[in-house]
Design a protein around this nucleic acid. Structure first.
Length: 534
RNA sequence: GGGCCUGUAGCUUAGUCAGGUAGAGCGAUGGACUCUUAAUCCAUCGGUCGCGGGUUCGAACCCCGUCAGGCCCGCCA
């Protein structure tokens, strides 16, 4: 069973109505890692729907969280906002300075700024959650009753946190962080409490009181989370391994939520996604790739497959080079399979059966439109990459595919895929080994690997190509003919040509590429290769 | 210090909850197609399941220990 189906099955034992929740703090640029959070939730929700459950998927944007520090991408002016809530401060402009104008005129906040492109990416990926703005939830009083219980039972909550996390809370700790006279959550001391007011004294020596009903402050994270479960009615939540470890916030949350009068959601801990060779992603370290950027290179179903095919507790290493090519080709292969037919084979062992089921499940989770069957395009990414590099216009690509019998007319997804392929090729992410480039001078190493027969053909090639008409068909005939004239297999001709022109053993069909090149240049290169042999 | 997760062919991994001959895919190698759009088809190779012990008729799986990597016990997907 696919991991999402396993989670759905666990949910079905608890009831038929479910709310799967995810949450992210918009403190900086969203990256591929955040996608795992949201896709994991989306896939559980999808699997639960498949299992006949009534399920809603929500995404909580933690706009009530404070700005922790002035990140590298922010200007020094942000110093004044440290401790202020992300949903109540201006967004950075191109220089990283606060955009006061948009803030005042449109109410465009720091949180909105980072959230918007992520939501656009989610739209493309086929994830459409109900969005909950956490700050708005506080100010509209959603947290009121639960915050009241938390404050009323402060001692029990303190005890739970200290016991489970093994950490000692300070003497003046209180389960409510009030906003101070400047709007910051930092350095505020709670001096008293009588519902609905929490009295405080801030670092500027000013005192005041915070109204729980109006959200003039927030619950600290370890209480904020279970309180959300409570008022939203969350029954399932995936979260990163940082929250999942023993003593972490899920461990304290599951106990605190009971004090608040609710049941903890079904948990699912997932590993992080790292950028190959660069460790965990972190917005502040700058080693990120955003969902939008990734979507310019590959179609959304490939990104979904990345998350769907790995069990949540496996770390994922992401890179935009060859592994992405392999992943995309794997998608094609998986899409081309007929799982029903495979599963109808009675002789399958239990393990083989599980494997087929998991692959089928991963594909069900990978397709963008829920319920659709993945469409095999009959064109691998490798092949498309090749065509995109050798054909100037899209029409030429389609013509080539028609001739090969791969397609009749390009489908929308294929058109879309070619567009992304072209932008990938133009980007810095496109892997070198996928690039097609004719050598400028002989590659000695590659030539030395040729055997006697291959060398024989190579000596004949300059004359053969110098003599032939410079079009695709003639070139295509000249290479194998050169071998045949020597009573040798055409295979030797191709092998010799690849080593001489590309420095590789194999490659794409040469004729169309050579036809684009200058005949003299090619012939000259071949002459040099022959000379280099001696 | 205490705790959680991960470690299986060159690579990505399934199988660990319910112990029963270690399964895939990629790659590699070989062959076929009178020959190549990195193609396709077929076949082959490749694993002391991190390491050591224990339980068992039988252990990748359960138990104990140990090593390596990641994480949590301030904040982080």
């Amino acid at each position: 069973m696919h991991w999402a189906d396993v989670a759905a099955k666990a949910l079905s034992h608890k009831g038929t109505k479910h709310i799967v929740s995810t949450g992210i703090t918009p403190s900086g640029e969203f990256h591929i890692g955040h996608l795992r959070e949201i896709l994991t939730g989306d896939m559980i929700a999808r699997a639960a729907r498949n299992a006949g459950l009534d399920v809603e998927f929500v995404f909580i944007v933690d706009t009530a969280d404070p700005l922790r520090k002035v990140y590298d991408f922010l200007g020094p002016e942000y110093e004044q906002f440290i401790g202020h809530q992300l949903g109540s401060i201006p967004a950075p402009d191109h220089e990283g300075n606060p955009d006061w104008q948009r803030f005042e005129e449109e109410g465009w906040t720091y949180g909105d700024h980072f959230l918007k492109p992520f939501l656009e990416a989610l739209e493309q990926i086929g994830v459409r959650p109900r969005i909950i703005d956490n700050l708005e939830s506080y100010t509209s009083g959603r947290f009121d009753q639960l915050a009241k219980i938390a404050c009323d039972r402060a001692d029990e909550i303190r005890e739970a946190i200290e016991r489970i996390s093994g950490r000692e809370l300070s003497e003046d700790w209180f389960p409510w962080s009030p906003l101070d006279s400047k709007g910051s959550l930092d350095g505020v001391q709670v001096t008293g409490y009588e519902y609905p007011h929490v009295h405080w004294l801030d670092s500027h020596g000013v005192s005041g009181s915070s109204d729980l009903r109006k959200g003039e402050g927030k619950l600290p994270w370890r209480i904020d989370w279970p309180a959300k479960w409570g008022w939203i009615g969350v029954t399932c939540e995936p979260f990163g391994k940082d929250h999942g470890a023993a003593g972490g916030s899920y461990a304290t949350g599951r106990e605190i939520v009971k004090l608040l009068g609710h049941e903890p959601p079904h948990p699912l801990t997932y590993e992080w996604i790292s950028l190959k060779g660069q460790g965990a992603m972190s917005s502040s370290a700058g080693n990120t790739i955003g969902p939008i950027e990734a979507l310019e290179l590959v179609p959304p179903e490939i990104l979904r497959l990345l998350v769907a095919k790995s069990k949540p507790n496996k770390a994922i290493e992401f890179d935009t080079g060859m592994s992405l090519v392999n992943l995309a080709d794997e998608f094609e292969r998986m899409a081309a399979r007929n799982y029903e037919v495979e599963l109808s084979d009675e002789s399958l062992s239990r393990r083989q059966r599980v494997q087929i089921e998991d692959a089928a499940g991963a594909m069900r989770m990978a397709v963008v439109e829920e319920g659709k069957t993945a469409e095999a395009t009959a064109v691998t990414f490798r092949h498309l990459a090749l065509l995109a590099q050798t054909k100037q216009s899209d029409e030429e690509v389609w013509a080539s595919l028609r001739t090969a019998g791969a397609i009749e007319e390009p489908t929308q997804s294929l058109v879309d895929r070619l567009k992304r392929m072209r932008s990938w090729i133009a980007s810095k992410h496109f892997p070198l080994e996928m690039k097609i480039s004719i050598l400028e001078e002989p590659n000695q190493t590659a030539l030395m690997e040729l055997n006697d027969e291959q060398r024989q053909v190579l000596r004949a090639l300059p004359a053969a190509l110098a003599a032939c008409a410079w079009d695709e068909q003639s070139i295509g005939g000249a290479i194998p003919q050169a071998a045949k004239d020597l009573q040798l297999s055409p295979k030797f001709g191709y092998r010799a040509a690849y080593s001489a022109l590309l420095g590789k053993e194999r490659g794409p069909r040469l004729a169309p590429i050579l036809a684009e090149m200058n005949q003299e240049t090619i012939v000259q290169l071949l002459h040099e290769c022959v000379a280099a042999l001696e």
